[in-house]
Amino acid sequence: MTELVNSAAADVIIRNADFDAGAEIDKLRRAGVGAIATFSGIVRDNAEAPGLIAMTLEHFPGMTEQEIQNIVDQARGRWPLTAVKVIHRVGRLLPQENIVFVGTASAHRQAAFDSAFFIMDYLKTRAPFWKKEETSSGTQWVEARETDDIALQKWVESR
C-alpha cells in the first residue's frame, strides 16, 4: 500500500506493515507545533489470553478508513490540531507487535492529549475491526467490551 505524506488523505492508514512510532512522531513536527501526544497499542501477551499465539485483525475496507477519518475530522473540529496521524495494522500479528498508532500535534499539550484520547475512544467503538485470537487451545473472536462504550460517555458529557 502506498503511503501518502503531507496530505489530508495521509491522516489515516490501514495496512499490515509495522510502523516506527519514533519516525511517525518526527513527521508530526510542523509549523506551529508545541506538543505531540501519541498512543501505541500493542498485542498483549499476559494472562488475559493464556497461551496466545497470534491475533488476526479483519476490517471492512473502505468503511474503516472512512469511519476513522470521520473521527479525525471531529477531533480537528474540537481542538486546534496542527497534524494527526492514525495507523492501524490488519492481518496476523504476534504478541508484543504493534497494532495501532495515534499521534496528535497542537500548539499546547491539553489539545494534543485530549484529542489522542478522544480518537482512541471513538476508534475502539466505531471503527470496523475485529480481532480473532489464536491460542494453544484453538481460535476465538474477541468480544466487545462494555467499558469501551462507557469510555465514550465522557466526550459526550464534556462537550
Binding site: G41, L57, H59, F60, M63, H88, I99, V100, M120, L123, K124, T125, R126, A127, P128, F129, W130, K131, W141, V142, E143, A144
Partner: peptide
Amino acid sequence: AFFPPVTGG
C-alpha cells in the same frame, strides 16, 4: 453490511 460489535484498537 452485517457485522459484530467492533474490537479494534
